[in-house]
Simulated assay, not measured.
Amino acid sequence: MTPAAPPTLTVRSMRPEDWPSVRDIYQEGIDTGQATFESQAPGWDRFDASRLPAHRLVAETADGRIVGWAAVSPVSARHVYSGVVEHSVYVAGEARGLGGGTALLRALSASTEAGGIWTIQASVFPENEASLKLHLANGYVVVGRRQRIAQMGHGPLRGTWRDTILIERRSPVI
């Protein structure tokens, strides 16, 4: 258990057998229309190929249920950006407000810093106030607003141009 995790949650490395729970939580977030431009959670092979294996985490309850996950992807194949990643963090609706998001972000910061990563960035919809508040409380800062960056491809907002808030966390260690 990481020190940042509430007593009822453990943050640990993601394993392939966690994928069904991770996928369901991802899809739940997608279905809100406030988490991502994606319209469907990918299959395991695509997820596995796009996320750095050393920095995939899950939040697990004492009875073994996965209630959240975090992972990072490289932002560029260029060597000069090897220490810059984009992250995703998702918490199941049933577990929101229990500290899982904070525990995952803190564990992800520790994991990436140990791996030589100096910047974690993400794009958040401005309407996702809970996510912005969570990130700002955990060392992220707003870099800027990207206006009409892409269109929603699913749900009631399909075809709607959306803004995102670009946030980042710079390591104070690296």
Score class of each variant (00 low, 15 high):
E86V: 08
G68E: 01
G33A: 07
R145N: 07
P172R: 14
G68P: 00
L9S: 03
R12Y: 07
S13P: 11
A54G: 14
T36P: 03
E38M: 11
F37P: 03
G64N: 09
P20T: 10
G83Q: 04
Q40N: 09
A110E: 15
A71V: 05
S13H: 15
G144L: 11
E17Q: 12
E94K: 07
P7V: 12
G144N: 11
R12N: 08
G139A: 10
L136E: 14
W19T: 01
V141T: 15
L132E: 04
D45N: 12
H55I: 05
A137K: 14
M152V: 04
A59V: 06
E60S: 08
H55F: 13
T36W: 03
T119Q: 14
P74A: 14
M14C: 07
G33R: 02
A95V: 05
S21Q: 14
P16R: 09
A107W: 00
P7K: 11
A41C: 08
V58R: 00
L9N: 01
W44E: 09
G68R: 00
S13E: 13
L57R: 00
L157D: 13
T2Q: 13
W69K: 01
L108D: 00
L98Q: 12
A122F: 04
R162L: 07
R56Y: 06
V67A: 01
H79M: 12
D24V: 07
V84L: 08
D48T: 08
A70E: 02
N138R: 08
A92H: 06
Y140S: 02
S88T: 15
G29H: 00
I30P: 01
T8F: 11
R145C: 08
G43L: 11
T160Q: 14
W19N: 01
R170Y: 06
P42Y: 13
L57G: 00
G153V: 09
W19H: 03
L98F: 06
V142N: 05
I174F: 11
L132D: 04
G116A: 07
V67R: 00
M1Y: 08
R148Y: 08
P42F: 13
